[in-house]
Design a protein around this nucleic acid. Structure first.
Lengths: 338, 338
DNA sequence: TTGTAAGCGTTATCAA
DNA sequence: TTGATAACGCTTACAA
């Protein structure tokens, strides 16, 4: 950087001088505290505008013991899924909600081999609260973290220990049960599942929803192949399914990305959808929309999930009473793949 | 939050007491300044470990005038592209690079109607520098921002005014020229372009590369249809192309997402790729990999682009001499679509 | 309702 | 090499 002097930012003291009041009064106006005369407010506001005053964050934090910032923690192994439309959109939702508040978002990629560093950062009072976006089950330490600062999880955390966590989620069991039902209604009787990882809440729940739908209809659980929610894993799962020789006429894939990968393999092998096999999935992202054929699926309000996590966290920070679990509504999107 | 007293974080003063030295000495040890006896270092280090001391960020910032944090600014209109694999991965690259440093990342979604708010935040000394990820050409105010704090852009900013900006980019002209050449080598002679927006550097440059390749081969610029880099816009562009009745046997799409959308339309209309028309594009994301057929394309080192932007910014902050423009290498990926 | 003054936990200057 | 001591810019009792 050049050594040129940066234009000295105006301080609260300068505003006070310009407005002809004390620093306390300026502080009160800035913080919208009651018991300030309209005149004082007007004078201070004018001075603030003229000088282009912006409170110094560090000073404010130091004096008030509040940071007005929250952390969005992404464990390193989950960071690989950064480009997953679901994660990306949730993060976006958080950021957008915050942009309408005084809060600032600190993005933390937590190195697996140095969890201690992250934990300390969070506990050292650098943030007022944290949102944990964990794909996997190794969220034990974060659940414990909730004892020292407010924490909100994206999706039900797997750890049993620690206090009951706050989290925002959708009803994955019901969603997958519902969508599997569409396959059954279309006359499919031998329905397999390309399931998510067993160490994730969404993986488990979506599998259970599929099972419930089959059971209710008296249909057999023909076969389960697991993936990790990525397109590549969906393709692999479909290959295993096909190579196993098992007979099926319907597929429930636990994510649109996996469905998309599976579809590619089906296409390669000359198997037609929906003529030969029907397919339904979860997520209404681009993968579902532009698949050939477009997929009948469940839409989750991802942006809103992010916004909700932020709002729950902020209310927690403000000491308000909030439900520990917030379920967001989903929507069935009927297209032509079932 | 509950009113229970949070375990009072140990202060530098407490460390000093425990180690039997002054606060100054502790500060020196913490900041690894020279001229401290080995004994002092040892004593202080022990005390730090025992107490689990972590420096208070706000106090440190206030006293040192350095924030050890940088902002990643995403203009609101660009935020819509959050789930674009390119953006998502670049952000991830930034975050991951930073996780290996003392720096913290503040994610800022800048509201269009209140650019002033963002500008002030950045200039009020809340961050040591900023990375601007702007999709569009309305980056004027950010270029000006570079006068007060170090700023690095992702991709060449369009604004002419202001000082020469620092930015990290790939050679889009050369990349698209190169990939278009593959189409020509495959015998295509009537090649159209699904171009990006005219208000983006990447949009302009990729169009120019296509033009250069055609010119070098003595081929005509059959037609140009514009999109905004999204799959939907690529599909629309292809529809317009087809409906216009213009005759073509090759397509250069300026992004894999647009290519993917275009492919869907081609498929709907029963036009085969590569038999009837060849297609090449840019970006080796999932869209390019799992398209049917898989696309011959250009791979950009997106994670590295993010990392590079962060490292350039940090060096700028440290007052080092850095090249204003950093070009990252790209790679041709040959598949079967040309 | 407003002002005074004492911190908040560091760093930085200056003497010793 | 170390230690006092004065900032850093703001909030917050407490007094007026």
């Amino acid at each position: 950087m050049t050594t040129e002097m940066s234009p000295q930012a105006p301080t609260l003291e300068m505003v006070a001088a310009a407005a002809g009041v004390s620093r306390s009064t300026v502080s009160r106006v800035v913080n919208a505290s009651p018991n300030v005369t309209a005149e004082a407010i007007a004078a201070v506001s004018r001075a603030i505008d003229e000088l282009g005053y912006v409170p110094n964050r560090a000073a404010r934090i130091l004096a008030s013991r509040r940071t007005f910032s929250i952390a969005l923690v992404i464990p390193e192994n989950t960071a690989k899924f950064f480009a997953d439309p679901y994660f990306a959109t949730v993060i976006q939702g958080v950021a957008m909600y915050l942009s309408g508040t005084e809060y600032t978002l600190t993005l933390l990629i937590a190195a697996e081999n140095d969890a201690e560093k992250t934990r300390r950062y969070l506990q050292a009072g650098n943030v007022d609260g944290a949102i944990i976006l964990s794909h996997h089950s190794d969220d034990r330490s974060y659940v414990a973290l909730a004892r020292s600062i407010p924490v909100v999880f994206g999706g039900r955390p797997m750890s049993a220990e620690g206090p009951n966590p706050y989290y925002v989620d959708v009803d994955n069991v019901e969603a997958s049960r519902e969508i599997t039902t569409r396959l059954i209604a279309a006359g499919r009787t031998r329905i397999v599942s390309i399931a998510g990882p067993a160490n994730m809440g969404a993986g488990l729940d979506r599998l259970e929803g599929w099972q419930r739908a089959l059971k209710a209809a008296g249909l057999p659980e023909v076969r389960i192949e697991r993936g990790d929610f990525t397109p590549a894993s969906g393709a692999d799962a479909m290959r295993r399914l096909l190579d196993s020789g098992v007979d099926f006429d319907g597929v429930f894939a636990a994510s649109a990305q996996m469905a998309s990968g599976a579809l590619t393999v089906l296409h390669e092998r000359g198997i037609r959808v929906p003529e030969d096999v029907g397919m339904v999935t979860i997520d209404n992202d681009y993968f579902a929309q532009s698949a050939v054929p477009p997929l009948t699926t469940i839409e989750q309000p991802t942006i809103e999930v992010g916004g909700k996590m932020a709002s729950v966290l902020l209310r927690l920070i403000d000491g308000e009473n909030v439900d520990r679990v917030t379920m967001m509504p989903v929507k069935v999107i009927e297209r032509t793949s079932a």
